[in-house]
């Protein structure tokens, strides 16, 4: 059975029921709309609107879901007392996310968050965390194209804490 998903730009994606169920959001909407795997009529007659996802991003999400539809749910590890979460990004996922420019990565992350696809969300979070690792503040700002909008008071506070180490 297939499910119809409609993006914000009115693009319709027909996806396998199992793939649609990977999204907690879609899954709940289907329940709310009484769409079940055995009821082909309801699946054909209804479509799921996803107003926060664009066509391009949806295509990427579906590509990821296709690859991971048979995966067992992965548990994240809490790393020692500091509570740092670790998530191992598979080689395929690294390759999948490698070509995305950062803006698109954020969009994909927003979509994963909205659709509640935990695996994809974790992959992207870990990828961004890895990108941040070992960078200086100004390099982070440059990488993410962030303009420093700190107030003078905030800058002064930061300088006070770090001036001696920047000397």
């Amino acid at each position: 059975p297939n499910v119809k998903l409609v993006t914000s730009d009115n693009e319709e994606f027909v996806v396998d029921f199992r793939i649609a169920k990977m999204s907690v959001t879609v899954s709940r909407l289907m329940e709310a709309m009484n769409m079940s795997e055995t009821d082909d009529a309801s699946l054909l007659s209804n479509s799921i609107p996803l107003p926060n996802v664009t066509k391009a991003v949806m295509a990427r999400v579906i590509e990821w879901c296709e690859k991971h539809k048979n995966d067992e749910p992965k548990e994240e590890k809490e790393n020692d007392k500091r509570g740092r979460t670790t998530h191992v990004v598979s080689d395929w996922d690294k390759e999948f996310l490698k070509n995305d420019e950062f803006g698109r990565l954020c969009q994909l992350m927003g979509a994963a968050n909205y659709l509640e696809i935990k695996g994809l969300f974790n992959d992207i979070s870990q990828t961004i965390a890895n990108m941040i690792h070992g960078k200086k503040s100004d390099e982070i700002a440059e990488m993410f194209n962030i303009h420093c909008d700190l107030t003078e008071a905030e800058k002064k506070e930061i300088r006070k804490k770090t001036a001696w180490c920047e000397d």
């Binding site: 993006t7 914000s8 730009d9 959001t25 609107p49 107003p51 926060n52 996802v53 664009t54 509570g83 740092r84 979460t85 670790t86 998530h87 950062f102 803006g103 954020c106 969009q107 992350m109 927003g110 968050n113 909205y114 969300f121 979070s125 870990q126 961004i128 965390a129 941040i132 993410f144 194209n145 962030i146």
Partner: peptide, 27 residues
């Protein structure tokens, strides 16, 4: 969730919701 005809605005790292930023920081 709310739908818009023009789709969501562009997302940057620092414009992500704080909860998502924290999820990244946890890693």
């Amino acid at each position: 969730c709310s739908g818009t005809a023009s789709g969501p605005p562009p997302i940057h790292f620092h414009t992500l919701p704080q909860s998502i930023i924290i999820e990244i920081f946890k890693r």
